[in-house]
């Protein structure tokens, strides 16, 4: 499933400057609000679902080469976070939906977390 299809299906807002989302195909999903968990658990190309919106999420996503970050519950990153995301080429998406629902919808679309799937 390509990122543009996911953005459409979940009606996500794209917070960073539009790049061609149809060229991004997440390798799976990852959800956590704890940066240490993401650092140890998320795989390259994963779509990261979190409620966190502070600056450090951009650094983590860039470091791990994540496909994009979906910020849930309408949390708004500040200007510094947005600027840093642009610089690092990290795609920030946002939705008013809670994490649980976002994951559920992504799962329905076939996005999984291969690492923990038996």
């Amino acid at each position: 499933m390509r990122l543009d299809q996911i953005v459409n299906a979940l009606q996500l807002s794209v917070l960073t400057h539009p790049i061609d989302l149809s060229e991004v195909e997440p390798t799976g999903g990852y959800a956590s609000d704890l940066l240490s968990c993401v650092m140890s658990g998320a795989q390259r190309g994963n779509l990261w679902v979190t409620l966190q919106s502070h600056l450090n999420i951009v650094a983590v996503a860039a470091l791990l080469d994540l496909a994009a970050i979906i910020i849930t519950e309408g949390a708004q990153p500040d200007v510094a976070t947005l600027e840093k995301a642009e610089q690092e080429g990290v795609i920030l998406l946002s939705t008013p939906l809670p994490t649980y629902t976002v994951i559920g919808r992504l799962w329905e679309l076939g996005v999984r977390n291969p690492e923990t799937t038996p």
């Binding site: 609000d33 704890l34 940066l35 240490s36 409620l51 966190q52 919106s53 502070h54 450090n56 949390a75 708004q76 500040d78």
Partner: peptide
């Protein structure tokens, strides 16, 4: 203000300071 915090990363990793 929602989201403003001076908490350390250690506290955030405990699930607080958001």
């Amino acid at each position: 203000q929602p989201g403003y915090s001076t908490a350390s990363e250690k506290v955030r990793e405990m699930g607080f300071g958001a």
